[in-house]
Design a protein around this nucleic acid. Structure first.
Lengths: 331, 331
DNA sequence: CTGAAAGCGCTAACAG
DNA sequence: CTGTTAGCGCTTTCAG
């Protein structure tokens, strides 16, 4: 790896001049500029991002951190793609930190990101009281949250109207004539889970459907929780005739249980999921679902972050994107 | 962010000594060691990984690059999780570079990784003639390939026996009585695609089934290609009675087409996929598929890479893991 | 056992 | 327009 020194020597100039042509920071004699460019090409010189980052603390190190709770969830993968596309276009690279819903792992990753001198962070915090992420924004690191906000702190957030999305889903179920609508929810510590549950309850109420506590069950938003909680609901003496599942993985798990029990969708039990998937049409019947624009969430978050890096004192923005009910065949 | 200097000053020692206790590099008086540890705690000192990386070129910067062709493919997500778990355990962080099958993007990422002074790279190269990845291993960077090897170069590779896996799948179909077995393949530029096709042809031959070129179609391994090529096959005057799909995304796409045409699986058309999914049981009927141990592939690759970083001249290993036919209900 | 000092590759004053 | 120099935070001789 050629260094700036090598280039300078080869071009017969000082490293400062090389740095100047590299950054267009001040005008350089055209002739020497050409000489330097030539040397750069000949040596295949590539500036070291590490040295740059070390040197210009707070400057553009072109490194972003992304902190997500579960990379197995296709929703986050799509968010990631959105972030990545924006990052790529702006010459940023991202360090992906998947903490698998493990707060210890999250803490460790956050330490590392700090120590890597990232320019900014996009995070879906473990909870809205996440002390570690809070501290990072208090320390002045540009942060934007996705999917989940942070209590008592003003940060950029990009999310979806979870309450309204859930309401739309359950309302649709109610209007379609389902009377016993169950909900497999995620942990109430996660804001979006609570919001979705709220939408569920609200839709029940507005449609004069009774809320039966035995039809509302909580899990940790994994595939396994979907399998088991669907099992539990469907084993009830009076099981739900429709299921509203709180996220992607739960939906998939519930589907496994339904098929295993040889239940027909939607005749025996209907299902509607929060979170659409790119391949919802590959399911049989095709899944009706609340679609979050995951890729777009990622993009917006990426844009906001880069903005904030450039202008750290811009007022925080909460960007609420619209969810959309994708009606297909499962209810 | 406190620096080593701050710690040294607070403890009343030199930075060299601080560095020593941090790295256990040589013995330090127990008393001063304690003093330093105390100062570290008080200042919440965290070593800068950036500075460390800059300083000790070739030393442990604790940064790995991962280059994958398509993060939308669940297979790579699982590989990623495997890598990440191993990396995490060894105090490494990974930079994920998803090049979306775009060679220009791949080149750009490789430049960046080089410039980030990564300690090693795990890559699923665009092709087995991938010049850029080849160059990186020739330059002495520790590299391990997953899923795909590199022509004419000795590198660590972790993959699966693609030929045998495909053979098992198609052989199963043949033994089950299907006579017109079609194959939706990936691009032949990708080694694993060729190998899977070879297995397909071999199984046909060994079962005395005719090979009909119209039943073998190629696409770029995306969901869309699955949708369209399945459409094409099923529109044939004599369509296949079974489909062997070349990867995850193709399978999902083909499923969409099958359902859209209201075809019954397996009566109207059977399907068997290469690449299993964690939620194959959520499909209706559950999908029969060739399972690659994706997570394990990632783990092994991670381990091999860390080994190689520690011992750069260890002889390259080609690790072939076994695929497994998961028989479920789709054929 | 400990400190001084060089240097990794780069940027940003400061001179000239 | 260009060169010199200090220093980002750290590791690593080399002395002592």
């Amino acid at each position: 790896m050629a260094s700036m020194n090598d280039v300078a020597r080869r071009a017969g100039v000082s490293i400062a001049t090389v740095s100047r042509v590299l950054n267009n920071s001040s005008s350089v004699n055209e002739e020497t500029r050409l000489k330097i460019l030539k040397a750069i090409k000949e040596l295949k010189y590539q500036p070291s991002r590490v040295a740059k980052r070390l040197r210009s603390k707070g400057g553009p190190g072109n490194l972003l951190g992304v902190l997500i709770p579960d990379i197995q969830n296709p929703f986050y993968v799509d968010v990631l793609r959105g972030i990545e596309d924006i990052a790529y276009k702006n010459n940023y690279v991202i360090i992906v930190c998947n903490f698998s819903q493990d707060e210890k792992k999250e803490a460790m990753y956050l330490d590392i990101l700090e120590s890597e001198a990232i320019d900014g962070l996009i995070a879906a915090p473990a909870s809205e009281d996440d002390v570690r992420v809070k501290k990072m924004v208090q320390n002045g690191l540009p942060v934007v949250c996705v999917d989940r906000g942070l209590n008592g702190i003003d940060v950029d957030v990009v999310w979806v109207n979870n309450d309204a999305g859930a309401f739309a889903a359950v309302d649709y179920l109610a209007k379609a004539g389902y009377k016993r609508i169950g909900h497999i929810a995620g942990l109430p510590t996660i804001p979006s889970s609570r919001l979705r549950e709220a939408g569920y309850r609200r839709a029940l109420a507005e449609n004069n459907l009774p809320f039966d506590p035995q039809w509302l069950v909580y899990g940790n938003s994994t595939y396994k929780s979907g399998v088991e909680l669907a099992e539990k609901l469907l084993s009830l003496p009076t099981p739900p005739d429709a299921l509203f599942t709180g996220n992607n993985l739960i939906t998939l798990g519930a589907l496994e249980t339904i098929h295993k029990r040889k239940l027909h969708i939607p005749n025996d039990v209907a299902i509607i999921g929060f979170d659409d998937m790119n391949w919802s049409n590959s399911l049989n019947p095709p899944l009706t679902a609340v679609r979050q624009p995951a890729y777009e969430i990622g993009q917006r978050a990426g844009e906001l972050l880069i903005q904030r890096i450039r202008d750290p004192k811009r007022a925080p923005i909460q960007m609420t994107l619209n969810s959309e009910l994708m009606v297909r065949g499962s209810c």
